[in-house]
Amino acid sequence: MSGAHSELKNAGLKVTGPRVRVLEHLETTRDRHLSAEDIWSALKEHGDEASLATVYRVLTQFEAAGLVQRHTFEGNTSVFELADEEHHDHMVCTKCGSVTEYVDEIIERRQHEIADAHGFEVSDHVHVIYGLCRQCH
């Protein structure tokens, strides 16, 4: 059984062709942050006949099962990435749209200190920095 097959079964999802192909594409692409349209176009290029609606449906199912995370960066376009065990934040270039992941322990600690000072219990957070990447400035 392939890795995608076992991941789908472990997530409680039935193994179907579209689910396997979307998951395999997410696992093998170099770009970790893909829109449904990006995935659909890549599948189409490889002869897959799944519709864009099918790709959206699969990604929504993956999100509900915890296999992917959805991010809506500037421009209201959702992008998806495989769910990681470790938390990370993002920097998004407002010119080319590139997304850079980073982890900063000081920022993580300060967020919790601020929340504690206000009696706020953190369940999750999103930290996105917008600006120009190295190639665009």
Rank of each mutant, 00 (worst) to 15 (best):
H88K: 07
A42V: 02
H137W: 10
H90W: 02
V92S: 02
H5F: 05
A36M: 02
E81Y: 00
F80Y: 15
Y130W: 11
S2M: 02
I106P: 00
R21G: 00
M91K: 12
W40A: 02
A64W: 01
T77S: 07
H137L: 08
T28L: 08
H137N: 15
V79A: 04
E37L: 13
H87P: 11
H46P: 00
A117F: 04
A117T: 05
F62S: 04
L67Y: 05
M91S: 13
F80E: 04
S35R: 06
V79S: 03
E7R: 15
E121H: 10
E121N: 10
G131C: 11
C133V: 08
V68R: 03
Y56H: 15
H112N: 15
D104P: 01
F73H: 08
F62A: 07
L34G: 02
C136R: 09
A50E: 09
F62T: 05
K14H: 04
E49M: 10
E105P: 02
V55A: 07
R57G: 03
E49D: 14
I114E: 07
N10H: 11
S35M: 03
R57P: 00
C136G: 08
M1D: 08
M91Y: 03
H137E: 14
E113H: 06
T94W: 02
G12T: 03
L52M: 12
K44E: 09
V126D: 13
R30M: 04
E74C: 02
A53C: 00
I107R: 14
E63L: 06
K95T: 12
A50N: 09
I106R: 14
G12M: 07
V15S: 12
M91A: 13
L23P: 02
V103Y: 07
H71V: 02
R57L: 07
K9L: 15
S41H: 13
G97C: 08
S51Y: 05
L132F: 10
S41L: 15
V79C: 00
V79H: 04
V103Q: 11
G75Q: 11
T72C: 06
V122H: 01
F80I: 03
E37R: 14
D38F: 01
G97N: 05
T60L: 06
R19W: 08
L52W: 04
A4L: 05
H33C: 00
V103P: 00
L52E: 11
H118L: 15
E37W: 12
Q61H: 11
I129Y: 07
A36R: 05
Q111W: 01
A117G: 14
H71N: 11
G131Q: 10
A53T: 00
H118R: 13
D31E: 15
E27L: 15
A4G: 04
G17V: 05
E113C: 01
A4R: 05
A64H: 10
T60A: 09
E113G: 01
D89Q: 11
H125D: 06
H87F: 09
V128L: 11
E121P: 01
W40S: 03
D38H: 10
D124A: 14
E37N: 07
R32C: 02
E74P: 01
L67C: 03
